[in-house]
């Protein structure tokens, strides 16, 4: 019932438009993506031209008024100003989304001289992402964590990580007894491994508690954060029963050469001090049909990702044929993250 409502009522205007596009292209399934991308690219270029024109105009005006400040620092100041007063992402029109993306891209360019690609691709219709984790297969190699950190531009100084791998002794799943800081050859005899991260709950408690609607569940089930809207009260962190959220206690730092430049507004774009962030199922990848970085990096095939609404997907086969369980199911959060064994 809950999900039905989710799919019938489209409360967020922006994704709706995106989904409509996907729908209209469904006749040419294989090229659907390309068509969508092409179409939006055209529009984007148009907006970029328009906005750069506007910006140049504004810059000219300012140059006329001011003699001392150089044009670059004035542009920076103006971009910062406009960024500060922008709306919550969900209230933005497509045009406004493009404008903020252009501003962010330009700000990065002014800061580093490098270009980034920032995406605002919305959810694809009839997709609900789900994840399965095979605790018989995970061997504690931690390759997923490395891949995740690189993909998602997490702060290197505090070694922020979305994924935790817990080493359990055979015979119990007791997280209080589990070892999280293991560093020995793996898998250790008599132990098994279990990864945790954001479970993208269908009833996410973190979303309910946010006082400013800076975090929400997208139509494809991904729980995202608008990093520029978050005020940093950390209520969501207290509300999450799964330790799925991470806070930027300081200005995050990623060496420029390590920055992943394929970014999504709701995903791995660079964050700032004092905002919340979390796993987004690699929204910048998965909305293009790729697997999340952790799935791609896992050498054992313990991680399975897919569309819960597609009865032919791998994840649906796992749910139908393996004995699966979820953690803290009694809380009613309905995680879209299942564990299973061989």
């Amino acid at each position: 019932m809950f999900l039905k409502k989710l799919f019938s009522k489209k409360s967020t205007p922006a994704p709706q438009q995106q989904t409509c596009k996907a729908e209209s292209c469904s006749c040419t399934q294989q090229n659907g993506y390309e068509a969508t991308m092409q179409k939006s690219m055209d529009r984007r270029t148009a907006f970029r031209q328009l906005t750069t024109g506007l910006l140049a105009g504004a810059g000219l005006l300012q140059t006329a008024c001011s003699i001392t400040a150089d044009s670059e620092s004035r542009e920076k100041a103006q971009l910062k100003w406009e960024e500060f007063f922008k709306k919550n992402y969900r209230l933005m029109t497509d045009e406004e989304k493009q404008q903020t993306v252009d501003r962010l891209t330009r700000m990065y360019e002014l800061r580093t001289g490098k270009h980034i690609n920032m995406d605002t691709k919305g959810p694809v219709q009839s997709v609900l992402y789900g994840y399965a984790f095979n605790i018989s297969k995970c061997r504690g190699y931690m390759d997923c964590v490395n891949a995740c950190v690189q993909e998602n531009n997490q702060d290197r100084d505090t070694q922020m990580q979305y994924i935790r791998i817990h080493e359990h002794k055979n015979g119990q799943i007791n997280f209080e007894q589990a070892e999280d800081d293991f560093f020995h050859e793996v898998p250790a005899t008599g132990h098994f491994y279990m990864g945790t991260q954001c479970y993208h709950c269908e009833n996410p408690p973190c979303v309910d508690v946010c006082p400013v609607k800076a975090t929400w569940k997208e139509e494809d089930g991904i729980v995202v954060v608008d990093y520029d809207w978050c005020i940093g009260c950390r209520y969501c962190m207290a509300a999450c029963p799964y330790d799925g959220r991470r806070f930027n206690w300081k200005e995050p730092h990623v060496p420029e050469e390590e920055v992943n430049k394929d970014q999504h507004y709701l995903g791995n774009r660079l964050r700032k001090q004092g905002v919340m962030e979390k796993c987004t199922f690699c929204i910048q990848r998965t909305r293009k049909g790729k697997n999340p970085a952790c799935v791609e990096a896992c050498p054992t095939g313990a991680r399975i990702f897919g569309n819960l609404l597609d009865p032919n997907s791998q994840i649906r086969w796992v749910l139908a044929n393996k004995k699966v369980f979820r953690l803290k199911e009694d809380l009613g959060t309905e995680p879209k993250f299942w564990y299973f064994m061989d």
Partner: peptide, 13 residues
């Protein structure tokens, strides 16, 4: 719920 929802298969780009 998911078993009763409309289905669409997404293809590679």
């Amino acid at each position: 719920h998911i078993q009763q929802l409309p289905v669409d298969t997404i293809a590679y780009d």
